[in-house]
Design a protein around this nucleic acid. Structure first.
Lengths: 330, 330
DNA sequence: CTGAAAGCGCTAACAA
DNA sequence: TTGTTAGCGCTTTCAG
């Protein structure tokens, strides 16, 4: 069932059919009679255009590429969810790929997407993404989600890492904590740096000296032993610890378990504060304060930004959308 | 940079270039000299074929559609991960969409995929997926993952729900449990029925009469209140409960929390058994027995099955791959 | 008001 | 050994 099938069945030309079916019937002033005939024939024969052909002809595919670090981390899969939902609602289909935080893989997946003629790419860039310039110079549309690349003017949507961290830590201070540890991982990532900055600023503003023994970075979150060693060392050096700020949700559960085993702290997470949230926190740690970023929004805005760039041709370079976190201060 | 650019730059025909570049140079007996010229030109000018054009011409897009229920449930996003990885490794790109378990949405997304000319679709079908026949009759290739549709001969890859449940429950019995509840949700789904069957068979084989008060179905897992009411009622009716078999991972955490609040049971999850696993179970419930399905395998096999169907043209109707679960009996 | 025809970039049957 | 040419299915300019 193709355009020309309809055309010949109805004794009209392909052009006519194409116009009618793409809603340009009136503006091309095609008779209502023919329009009706065409539409009805298409409907009864359940015609749908071959998008491949249409894309080839149009030079636009109504397809976007989504390139995220991982699909096993709920954080990223939520981004995927949000992007997919939004894209779908505006008639775009998304091709998905995962870089596993490997920037070579990332580069090659970008290539793949290009060859498949996606209209644009949304990505959570890895560090040292050197393909970016090549891609955009070749006319590729790109939007960064979650992380911006410092010094790049690619449109991005991020969250206010510094400010939210500041508020989280300030809140712990207001509640009376004064020895607040910061527990982090991958502390060189731009987001993590910003969160650390917020932590430091909150302490300084409260006149509390920053104690580097309280700042703990763990290399692998998935190695429970490593996490526990770090925590044990922390507790040894600062036994009168009275608060913890987690720069990311993934650190919370391993800590929770270790502390629970040693019978210390938690009490529903009072004295704890954390960036991001997991569903189980509500029930496991109801008193923990949380900066909850709306990943739904993040994804949606990323898609919007990309479409703007695609459809208006406006590259809106340098646009950075910063979303505020919803602060759940307990 | 297109095929004909190369052709005219080199003074050869498009056909020649096409053949050389798609590795058919030797079989078409094109002189080594021209082959070399073409390849070098393509390489230095960084030529890559326009996949849209190629797909249109070939009638095959090297693209598969993945249609899953959700991307927020780690179970499904793991499937996505597995499918994406496997597909990528064999040169396919995946388009992704989520049905949110809505079968109308599912049907319409299948349409979208068809129009975009994916080579085939992998899906975790919703109940009452009435689009299936239409799709396959129109020549669409389809593979079901995780759930098969009873009575349908679409190739599927599933796990041995009945057998694994049987072993899980038998293990609890061997450890001395005799009043084992079964906690389930969406009990009409084919997988859930199979798991219930395994539970029942285990009890019967052990000579324990099946007590229907012990079988509990909760409509919405995301409604903590509902879960708790069901549990409270269970405990009221069978206070000397000594084991629980969860038909799915999502029920575990809400139960854990409620029991923890009431100060009963857990002890690391001894007496508990569960289908699937979440990362946090290792640390929260180290003694819980688990039937862990290899989602990695499930996804990979689904892709393989689909490609077989696409590439061999062999529809291998009725093929059902049943994967065994890895039993973590504690 | 409608049609013919060129073109998007690639493949492949048929010639030479 | 290589070129010509007719598609794949759709859009759109230009002529009627």
């Amino acid at each position: 069932m193709s355009l020309s099938d309809i055309a010949s069945a109805l004794g009209v030309s392909k052009a006519t059919v194409s116009w009618v079916l793409s809603g340009k019937g009136d503006s091309r002033r095609i008779s209502q009679a023919t329009q009706k005939r065409v539409k009805e024939y298409a409907a009864t024969h359940n015609y749908h255009p071959n998008m491949l052909a249409r894309s080839l002809s149009l030079g636009r595919s109504k397809t976007i590429g989504l390139l995220i670090s991982s699909l096993s981390d709920p954080f990223y899969s939520s981004i995927a969810k949000a992007v997919v939902n939004r894209a779908e609602s505006v008639g775009y289909t998304v091709m998905i790929a995962t870089s596993e935080s490997d920037c070579n893989k990332e580069a090659s997946l970008v290539e793949t997407f290009s060859h498949r003629k996606v209209d644009g790419i949304i990505t959570t860039p890895t560090e040292g993404a050197d393909w970016v310039d090549g891609f955009t110079n070749a006319g590729g549309r790109l939007v960064f989600a979650d992380r911006a690349v410092p010094g790049s003017d690619i449109p991005s949507v991020v969250v206010d890492n510094e400010q939210s961290s500041y508020r989280l830590v300030s809140h712990l201070i207001e509640k009376g904590c004064s020895k607040i540890a910061m527990f982090t991982t991958a502390h060189n990532l731009v987001n993590m740096k910003a969160r650390q900055a917020g932590y430091v600023r909150a302490l300084e503003d409260a006149g509390i000296p920053v104690d580097t023994r309280l700042i703990r970075d763990v290399a692998s979150v998935y190695n429970q032993k490593m996490v526990e060693d770090e925590l044990d060392d922390l507790l040894r050096q600062v036994p009168d610890l009275d608060g913890i700020f987690f720069t990311t949700h993934v650190l919370v559960l391993p800590t929770y378990v270790h502390f629970a085993n040693r019978g210390i702290m938690p009490q529903g997470g009072a004295g704890w504060a954390c960036f991001h949230s997991l569903p189980e926190f509500d029930i496991l740690l109801p008193k923990m304060s949380i900066a909850r970023m709306s990943i739904e929004q993040l994804g949606a805005r990323a898609v919007d930004l990309l479409l703007e760039s695609i459809e208006n041709g406006t590259v809106s370079l340098g646009t950075t959308v910063t979303l505020s976190c919803e602060m759940m201060l307990k």
